[in-house]
């Protein structure tokens, strides 16, 4: 008896230790980046162009570039992802084609991001002749986050109780009316959550934008979607490895801004989900 109690204690301790080990790096990342980056943050840093070969000045064009890219990715990926999710959850019959499509989506999620970068280079930059541009970068990021949006939207659609669909159809609504009036409104919080998580991912990735859009140094704002742009993750890479003698403060400041943007998006997703769970009563 005593032995089994002790073993239980040891097991609990080990499990707890493992859990703790997950939290520590997250905490450390946040603490170190805030500690080292916060002194760099001021209005000028956020709103000014980089100066003196990026060793001074601000990161404004990189912030704007990232916002453009994220917006472009979502304009492209949300409708396609949502429509695909509606098709898969509401219309698709369980057959070979559907299984292939579902498998493709799972695999799309597992493709390394640098491969997306090369793919974007080949397809959008070279083949479609969009050049290295916001358009190419947005499309590449869009394809990368498609599986996130499709998976989250499908889960959201499928979590709407089947009985809602039955009632709506039994009242004489067509399938499309049922989806539009009953299924979608009840799935929107889940779809939004997935979309925002996808946005966070798109904002943080470096590899997909490396060959498709990112400018090394561009001290002006892009004028159209066919322009190159700076972006936060790539800028961080550049000032950390490619430019000598950049003040540590500026590097960590840039990282802090990027981290804050991504965490802010995730926070919004968490809030939406929480609000929805509170209201949901079925």
């Amino acid at each position: 008896m005593r032995n089994s109690k002790q073993r239980q204690k040891i097991a609990f301790f080990l499990l707890f230790l493992a859990t703790l080990l997950i939290v520590i790096p997250v905490g450390l990342i946040v603490v170190i980046i805030i500690q080292k980056g916060l002194p760099a943050i001021n209005w000028q840093f956020l709103s000014d162009m980089p100066r003196k070969g990026m060793r001074a000045g601000g990161i404004f064009p990189a912030i704007v570039g990232t916002l453009y890219l994220v917006t472009g990715a979502i304009i492209f990926a949300l409708p396609i992802g949502l429509f695909a999710a509606i098709y898969l959850s509401e219309y698709a019959k369980e057959n070979f084609l559907t299984r292939v499509i579902k498998l493709a989506i799972v695999n799309l999620a597992g493709v390394p991001s640098v491969v997306y970068g090369l793919f974007g280079l080949a397809l959008f930059v070279v083949f479609f002749k969009f050049g290295a541009s916001i358009l190419s970068g947005s499309l590449t990021l869009g394809i990368m986050i498609l599986p996130i949006i499709i998976t989250a939207s499908r889960e959201a659609l499928e979590s709407v109780p089947q009985s809602f669909r039955e009632v709506s159809l039994s009242l004489g609504a067509s399938k499309w009316q049922t989806i539009k009036n009953i299924v979608l409104p009840n799935a929107i919080p889940g779809i939004l959550t997935g979309t925002i998580l996808g946005l966070g991912r798109a904002a943080g990735e470096t590899a997909p934008i490396l060959f498709t859009v990112a400018a090394f140094y561009l001290p002006r704002l892009p004028a159209s979607v066919f322009d190159q742009a700076m972006a936060l993750p790539y800028h961080l890479y550049v000032i950390s490895t490619q430019v000598p003698n950049v003040d540590e403060k500026i590097r960590y400041g840039t990282a802090l801004v990027l981290l804050a943007m991504v965490l802010f998006m995730n926070l919004i997703a968490i809030i939406i989900r929480y609000q929805f769970r509170k209201k949901k009563k079925w």
């Binding site: 109780p161 009985s163 809602f164 039955e166 009632v167 709506s168 039994s170 009242l171 004489g172 609504a173 009316q177 009036n181 009953i182 009840n186 949901k280 009563k281 079925w282």
Partner: peptide
């Protein structure tokens, strides 16, 4: 031919919106 189901299953909408659902559709 309308149907009443085993479990009462109003939509998660207001009482009013539940009743006018059919009319709005048709």
């Amino acid at each position: 031919v309308g149907m009443v189901f085993q479990r009462p299953n109003p939509f998660p909408l207001s009482i009013y919106e539940n009743i006018v659902f059919g009319e709005k559709i048709h």
